[in-house]
């Protein structure tokens, strides 16, 4: 049964991912990104990584992407012709992308043929993640506070008025 769900959500994920890059209307791009995030979070739930799944749903689909949607609607990007004049990058983009995909497939296939993957012994509940985060991974966890500090300074200094004339 869970295998069935896996294939369903995986297919949906790939399809909605394609819509994200192929759709002409920015509104559809963002909406399909929401769908993609939803499918991804379901895949995490199937892997018993509950915390990551819920966070993906809450933070990305719930907050970030809805914010995106607001911006897109506020900017009123109804005129798709603005995005059309980038054809010269299209071919090289597809070429690079398919090269990347091919090498990805080949490496993953050879890897999966030689050894089997077993699921992680740690369940992805909030309790388990919290325990690991505050013991084994306490250094990276604390270091992210500097990342937030940089972001704060960045936003404050960029949002303030411009420097007096240089």
């Amino acid at each position: 049964m869970s295998l069935l769900f896996f294939y369903f959500f995986a297919t949906m994920l790939v399809l909605s991912g394609l819509v994200v890059i192929l759709a002409q209307n920015p509104l559809y791009n963002v909406l399909s990104l929401v769908v993609a995030t939803f499918c991804l979070s379901n895949l995490f739930l199937l892997l018993e990584a509950y915390f990551v799944g819920i966070i993906l749903l809450l933070v990305y689909a719930g907050a970030v992407l809805i914010f995106f949607l607001f911006v897109v609607m506020c900017l009123n990007l109804n005129n798709p012709s603005a995005f059309q004049n980038q054809n010269r990058f299209k071919i090289s983009g597809w070429l690079l992308g398919s090269c990347f995909l091919a090498s990805f497939f080949l490496t993953t296939k050879s890897y999966l043929l030689t050894r089997s993957l077993e699921p992680s012994s740690i369940r992805g509940t909030i309790e388990a993640i919290g325990k690991i985060l505050f013991t084994e991974y306490v250094l990276p966890f604390e270091l992210t506070s500097f990342l937030l500090l940089v972001a704060t300074f960045g936003i404050v200094s960029l949002a303030q008025g411009s420097l007096k004339s240089r």
């Binding site: 990342l147 940089v150 960045g154 960029l158 411009s162 420097l163 004339s165 240089r166």
Partner: peptide
């Protein structure tokens, strides 16, 4: 990230 912000620091430019 601190470099990104500092690069764009001259907002009027």
């Amino acid at each position: 990230i601190s470099l990104y912000v500092m690069t764009a620091y001259l907002k009027s430019d």
